[in-house]
């Protein structure tokens, strides 16, 4: 599956520890940790590994309607 523009990862900033667990777990190198903000780029394939890797459950995928 290729990331659709309508699908967005949502990072819960109240939970995110900026630890980079999702970044290093991403098979596509599609996440960038800019200081304390996560940026997802177009090489994301929606594999959702980052969601599972996040130790605190801060990432979720907002599915398109």
């Amino acid at each position: 599956m290729k990331k659709d523009q309508l699908d967005e990862f949502e990072v819960n900033i109240d939970k995110c520890m900026h630890c980079g667990a999702c970044v290093g777990s991403c098979p596509q190198n599609a996440i960038y940790l800019r200081e304390v903000v996560l940026e997802f780029n177009d090489s994301c394939t929606l594999c959702k590994r980052c969601i599972k890797a996040c130790p605190v459950g801060a990432i979720k995928l907002v599915e398109s309607a």
Binding site: G20, A21, V23, G24, S25, P27, N29, Y32, L33, R49, A53, C54, P55, V56
Partner: peptide, 26 residues
């Protein structure tokens, strides 16, 4: 640049990990 290293990947060196080779911690 640590676990979330990007520099190696930018240089074309494969540092990607299989799921069984990742431990997440708290």
């Amino acid at each position: 640049d640590g676990f979330e290293s990007q520099v190696g990947r930018w240089a074309g060196i494969d540092t990607s990990l299989a799921p069984r080779d990742i431990t997440t911690c708290f």
